[in-house]
Simulated scan of single mutants.
Amino acid sequence: MKSIIDINMMNNKVWIWVAWFSLVFSMAQAQILNPAKWQYKVSKEQVKINETVEIVFQVILDEGWHLYGNIQNYDMGPMPTEFSFETQPKYKIVGTVKPVGAKSEFDTVFDVTVNYFEGKATFSQTVKILDSNPIIKGTYEYQVCHMTQGKCILLSDDFEIKIKTTP
């Protein structure tokens, strides 16, 4: 009888520890903020070799959050959005990433004029297709700040865009 009670007590302790670790893990997950949801689209569903396409990155921002544009005119300030594309022989990046519809305003926190987006952000990149079915890979890094809560977050993510070519 005593061994059954000892086993039940051990099982209860194990379950208490499992529950505690689960609670801590779920609380840690809840603390991760991601106020910017990224997606992309390609200007053409199918493209021929030697044609160009526009890759359009769209970002939906949670209410109250700003995303800083990739083109800034300061040395010290919030981190501009940066795009890096993997170099591959199947495509060529043409020009630079263009922000679409960024606002400009003097920021008293950083003491500089910043280009930023609120609500949503759009960036466009021209790509020339040099070979069949390229996969365009890269990374974007960015900073978002909440204008009333004073929170700023640096984030990054990888992207992979498959382009279908036609003969």
Rank of each mutant, 00 (worst) to 15 (best):
M79P: 00
F106V: 01
I136M: 11
I136P: 05
I4F: 05
M147G: 03
K48R: 14
N115Q: 10
A19R: 01
V127M: 06
D107C: 04
S3V: 06
V144K: 02
W20Q: 09
S26A: 15
V112Y: 00
I5F: 12
K41S: 15
H66T: 07
H146L: 03
M9P: 00
H66K: 09
V42L: 04
Y142I: 01
I71E: 14
C152P: 07
N73S: 13
Q72N: 05
W65K: 03
K164G: 05
F21L: 15
I4W: 02
N115D: 09
T165S: 03
E160Y: 00
A30G: 06
T126M: 10
L33E: 12
I129G: 07
E51V: 00
K128E: 15
N73C: 02
V112I: 06
I7M: 10
V100H: 06
V47S: 05
M27A: 15
N73Y: 11
G101K: 07
A19C: 06
T166G: 04
D62V: 01
T96F: 06
N12I: 01
N50F: 06
P78L: 08
V144Q: 02
Y140G: 03
Y74V: 01
Y74R: 12
E160S: 13
F85Q: 10
F123M: 08
K90I: 02
W15M: 15
V100E: 15
K162D: 05
L130R: 09
Y68F: 15
D62A: 15
F117H: 04
D157A: 14
P80G: 08
S124L: 13
G64S: 10
K128L: 14
I49H: 06
F123D: 06
K103D: 08
P78H: 12
W38V: 06
T96I: 10
G64Q: 09
Y142A: 10
